[in-house]
Amino acid sequence: MTCDEAQILLHALLDNELDAGHAREVEAHIASCPACAAELAAQREMKRVLADTKLSYSAPAGLRARIEASMPQARPQPSRRSVLRGFAMGSAVSALAASGVVAVVLRQDDQQRILSEVVSAHLRSLQAGHLIDVVSTDQHTVKPWFNGKLDVAPPVIDLTAQGFTLVGGRLDYVDARAIGAVVYKRRQHIINLFVSQTASTEHRPPKTQTMQGFNCRRWGERGLNFWAVSDIGGDELTEFVDKFEAAMKVNVEG
């Protein structure tokens, strides 16, 4: 083997890309050639330093969100046809969904549209067996899971002691954007807490609306929009939001 050949093959040796036969040939050459041996050692050293350095980049969260938004979204715009199909499915859930149609069709202003999307996302999470992407009752597991997936860091607060068990988190899509959903359980009822970014940082007090048989309580705080959606009663949902807000206040100030 010539030095010219060895100078190329020693890299393949370093990268574990050589078969046993060729590896032996390169090693034999290197054993008898101080120059090539020095080059191998130097390259090994450089490879080691490079491996210890973070040279990769992380994609900005905004880029991820833009790519997500450019793909066909989970929920087509509600139409009368989809409503009828909902009826045809005949499940209790679809019947509930169908009963909310009038509101969907008649009041397509922005707030209402987003509310209907939030409720749809809640329904989807119950139907499709895609309730949770990260299963954990530990807020310190759920919170970091969202890192890099969203352009917001949803507050994840364990409310088990207050009667609402944290069960996990999920990525969802509302208004053609990726949005965080933190999932809680109250007895056998699921509460989806959706969190998205908003330009306004002012506090907007919680307000409950009902759609398709679900209660949805929404509020705004510290540049975030929150929607808590569940089939639990309005007073229980209010209790949930109160406890969440109180705990969030403690977290921020504490």
């Binding site: 101080p34 120059a35 020095a38 130097a42 050293e45 330093v49 350095t53 040279l55």
Partner: peptide, 11 residues
């Protein structure tokens, strides 16, 4: 022929 040790550099 000794290996030259490269100084670690920041990323």
């Amino acid at each position: 022929p000794e290996t030259e040790v490269l100084r670690s550099r920041d990323a």
